[in-house]
């Protein structure tokens, strides 16, 4: 398998306060294509900082980061933008959809910033397909404030996948959702992972983490443990056992 992420002694130091904060201090890590990794750890252990660097939203203070074979630390602002656009999909805890903008238009958004944009009709078709895939095709015309949290997160996932990224980054994607909705979202992740997308997901809940294939635990900006999941949970099975409710 080809490595998607290769980190070598990665450090991130914030110099903003009175004394510098060492948020990430020497992380070396390799994640191969097709992996589904859960990142856990106490609050303030540097998970989000690491995710931001992996997502090319932030730059490391030192160390090397190869994303899909590209040395990220040497890229400029625009090149990082293009990398985020083509190679990475983001799913946030608070969904981060554009307000007063319909679901389908939210999903189209990353396509608008492609260097070689598709035609408007193709964009619309792709966006609707993507919404269909996460089971929310019927709500394409709804704006975020007309959607439940779970539905919004589905829209966000549809958006993150629209440019066929090699890596899906999710920082506490189920943090604002109830257990049933969380299970549904994890089901989507597992299905996407089965289709070959590499996923990195931050979570505080061991229950959620057990849906991944590999769990990394961080403490004080370092990796504490790195283990393969033994008894992996399958969201699809759990959903069958849960009392049936109409989904979306």
């Amino acid at each position: 398998m080809t490595p998607i992420i290769e980190l070598e002694d990665l450090c991130k130091t914030y110099a903003s306060g009175e004394e510098p904060v060492h948020a990430v201090r020497g992380v070396s890590l390799t994640i191969l294509q097709g992996e589904f990794v859960a990142v856990m750890g106490t609050s303030g252990s540097g998970k989000s900082t690491l995710m931001n660097i992996l997502g090319c939203l932030d730059r490391p203070s030192s160390g090397s980061y190869l994303l899909d074979g590209i040395q990220v630390s040497s890229l400029n602002r625009d090149q990082l933008s293009d990398l985020r656009n083509r190679k990475i999909g983001f799913v946030f805890q608070n969904f981060n959809l554009l307000a007063r903008t319909s679901a389908v238009e939210n999903v189209e958004l990353p396509m608008l910033y492609r260097r070689n944009p598709l035609s408007a009709a193709e964009q619309r078709k792709k966006a609707l397909q993507s919404l269909e895939m996460v089971g929310i095709g019927k709500r394409a015309g709804h704006t975020p404030n007309q959607l439940s949290g779970g539905q919004q997160q589905r829209v966000a996932i549809a958006r993150s996948l629209i440019n066929d990224p090699v890596l899906l980054l999710a920082d506490e994607p189920t943090g604002n959702l109830d257990s049933r909705t969380s299970c549904e979202i994890l089901g989507i992740f597992q299905r996407l992972n089965d289709q070959g997308i590499t996923i990195l997901m931050v979570t505080h809940e061991p229950e959620v983490a057990n849906h991944a294939k590999r769990i990394i635990v961080m403490r004080d900006g370092k990796i504490l443990t790195d283990t393969q999941v033994q008894n992996r949970l399958q969201a699809a099975d759990e959903l069958k056992n849960l009392p049936t409710e109409t989904v979306s």
Binding site: L57, D78, S81, N85, A99, Y113
Partner: peptide, 16 residues
């Protein structure tokens, strides 16, 4: 600001 953040995160360049 938040809208700008979202657009930047999904790949908008500064020039966009």
């Amino acid at each position: 600001t938040r809208e700008i953040g979202i657009r930047l995160a999904i790949g908008a360049r500064g020039s966009d």
